[in-house]
Structure formats: C-alpha cells, structure tokens
Amino acid sequence: MPRWIANLADPMIAVLLIATSLALILPASGETREVAQIVSNVSIFLLFLINGMRIARGEILNAIGNWRFFGPLVLFVFIGMAAMGTGFSFLAALYAAPEIALGFIFLGVLPSTIQSATSYTTLAGGNAALSVVGAALINILGVFVSAPLFAALAGSAAVDLGTDTIVRIGMILLLPFVIGQTLQGFTRSWLIERKSQVVWLDRVVIGIAVYVAMSGAVSQGLMSSMSPASAGWLTLITIAFLVLAYSLAWKLSGLSGYARGDRIAFVFAGPQKSVAIGAPLAAILFEPAVAGFVIAPLLLYHLLQLAVAAPLATRFAQQSEG
C-alpha cells in the first residue's frame, strides 16, 4: 500500500472525526458541559507539562542560534500566514457565519505541528533535525504570540484578551510548560522510552478539547447555520489556503538560499498548523458556544494537511533519488 494512502488512516484523523461526530450526536450541555470543560482544562495542563518535559532545552538554544533558518520561519508563520488568514477571513465572510470566517484569522496565527514536521521531513529526505527543532521553537513562541496576535488582528470585539484571559493562558499553558522544563532532567528519558503512549495522550487531550468546543457550537445551531453550500465554500477556501501556504513556504525557502534538505524542512515546519495548540487555545479564548465555530477551519485544514503532506513528502524523496 502506498505511504500516502496509509496516511489517510492516521489515528489523529480518527480522533478528530470521532470527537466531532460525538459532539454532533451527543453534545455536552448544561452541567455536563461545565464538567467536560474542567476535564479539558486539566488535560490541557497535563499536555503542556509533558511538552515542557520532552522538548530539550539544548535543542531550543540551538534553534535560536540558527537565525538564518529560524528568522524567516518565524516571519512566515506569524506574519505571512497571519496576513493570509486575515485576507481569507474576508473571503469566508461572504459564504459562512462570521465566527467561522474569524476562524481563518485564528488558523493563520497558530504555530506549526511538531510531529508532522519530524515524520514528513524524514520521509522526504530533508533536514529532520532542523525541522523538528524549528517547529518546536515555533510552538513555544506560539504560546506567547498567537493569542495577542489574534486579538490585534481580529479586534477586541472578537476576543477580550483581558487580565482573566491572560491569567488562564499563563496557568493552563505557560506554567505547566515551565514546570516541565524544570523537571525534564529527571523525566525526559522516561518519556522518550514511552513515546507511543505519550503520543496517544496528545491525541486524547486534543479530542477532548475538540469535543467540548464542537458541543458548544452544536448547541448554538452549528448544523442549521452550515448549509451544504456554505460547507462547500468552506472546503474550497480552506484548500486554497493550504495550497497557497505550501507554495509560499517553498518559494520563500528558495529565496532564502537554503539547500534542498533545509527547504524541505522549512516546508514541513511552517505551513502545517497545530491543532494541539489551536484546540486548547480556543477553549481558553472563546466561550464554548463560539469556540466550535472558530476551530472549524482549523479542523478541516488539519485533516487536509495530513492527507497532502505524505504524497508531497514522497514526491520530494523521489525527486532527490532521481
């Protein structure tokens, strides 16, 4: 079976589909939703604690030192794609609910995903070490940058980044990561030995966050507000966003004068957006009734990038062999 076909069976796709389907069929509401939100917050805290434990401090320092790669990567992720998200949000507003259009700005300001950066850069024959470290550092920056950048682009009417929200971000995302960095000398090797179990923890936490967010959207009439035509336009706009993001990443890496292996690393460390950051952050920034609408473009983009990344990596590998 070709690698790209096998990729369609990626467990993360199954987790997202199950969480979304469960929210559509049996959404959490009332007191149940409050309990689910608490469970989600605790799970997110645990996820970022483990992230802090497993991302080596030395790798972070090395990535910062490689400014020739990391500088353009930061500009692409947090300026280029943020600008793209803002532009696409105006287009989406013509065909979808305002909250869904807002989701394209949210999509644009998110960091990339570490796991995909590693696996697909390796498959493509690129500089895997550079890709994973760059993506990891982008994720760390995302915890600090994504929320205020979104607030600046979307405006105060979209999200109130007040003291309470900042404190929640600090307590649920930053604090556990700092604790994890402090403890990693005692825990990192233990986590590495149990990598497969840790990956499933990531997926379960993301699934919980997506379920809670989508439950709120369903209770606010997501299905009634999403006509077949709107769903079709959302899909087309998201595909256009994905194609443009990958194309610009490849072009920018070429203009930066990178070797082919580094260009491949840039492509898989930049355009791929992280639902592992996006779903938890949406749960903090937005009320459940809004969060499900806002993450709709992110969920669709994530599914599409999983389907596209493997054949793209295979093509890169074949070109290198040729």
Rank of each mutant, 00 (worst) to 15 (best):
I237H: 00
A291W: 05
K251L: 15
I237Q: 03
L248S: 08
V294I: 09
L299A: 12
P297R: 00
G292F: 02
G278P: 08
K251D: 12
A245C: 12
I264G: 08
P280Y: 08
L242N: 12
F268I: 04
Y246P: 05
Q272K: 12
A291H: 06
V294P: 00
P288Y: 06
L248Q: 05
A282M: 10
P271G: 03
K273H: 11
S253G: 13
P297C: 01
V275W: 00
P297A: 10
G292W: 02
I239P: 01
V267Y: 02
Q272A: 12
Y246K: 11
A240D: 06
R263K: 15
I237R: 04
V290T: 04
L281V: 09
L285I: 10
F286N: 06
A245N: 10
V243Y: 13
V275K: 04
A276L: 13
A289P: 06
A259L: 12
Q272E: 13
F293W: 11
S253C: 10
K251S: 11
L300C: 08
L234A: 12
L234S: 08
G292T: 10
A259H: 11
G261F: 04
A259Q: 15
R263P: 00
I264D: 04
V275N: 03
A283R: 08
A269K: 11
L255K: 14
A249S: 15
L252Y: 06
G270C: 14
K273T: 08
T235N: 04
A296N: 03
I295Y: 00
F241M: 12
